[in-house]
């Protein structure tokens, strides 16, 4: 067992982990942040995607000890103090981009990174290609692609977010 310290969703936390403990296991089992899911064991599905130091990573393919000192952001951390949602979360809701909800946290975390990485704009083809690390079995991706396209201008301050 080793004790590691890191920042998760803006709070400094520490946890006792084995060397073999995966980041996703620490988040779910030690920190009870169960919004990050595990959908496969071969790094294909992306249900476990979180941000580490601003980059989207698969938390099932990173050891917890590798996150020592890192800033980790999970789906729970996207929700503002007042309960309001991140624009990507809002657009997923607006465009019915989720059904069973299982792939959703990872999908949202990947989508945010994708949009952030493309300030110049995103075509539908780029969005579809950019989601190659995330699987969804419910939606057929159609509405996920729409939601990400709709979130882009909001996240890049091109249009104000529509009031609910």
């Amino acid at each position: 067992m080793a004790q590691i310290s890191l920042t998760v969703n803006g709070k400094t936390v520490s946890a006792d982990v084995e060397s073999r403990t995966l980041l996703v296991e620490m988040l779910r089992d030690k920190l009870h942040l169960t919004g990050t899911h595990v959908g496969c064991d071969t790094s294909q599905c992306g249900a476990c995607v979180v941000q580490v130091n601003g980059m989207s990573v698969k938390a099932c393919t990173m050891l917890a000890v590798q996150a020592e000192g890192a800033k980790v952001l999970t789906i729970e951390g996207l929700v503002n103090e007042d309960g309001s949602l991140h624009p990507m979360q809002e657009m997923f809701r607006e465009h019915h981009a989720l059904q069973c909800g299982y792939c959703t946290p990872g999908m949202v975390m990947s989508a945010i990174d994708l949009v952030n990485s493309h300030p110049e704009g995103l075509t539908e083809e780029q969005i579809r290609h950019g989601l190659e690390g995330n699987l969804c079995r419910c939606t057929g991706y159609h509405n996920i692609v729409k939601a990400i396209a709709a979130a882009w201008p909001i996240m890049h301050n091109k249009v104000p977010m529509a009031a609910e």
Partner: peptide
Amino acid sequence: IGDRQVRYR
């Protein structure tokens, strides 16, 4: 190579 997440690491 791989996907966006793989390419970061």
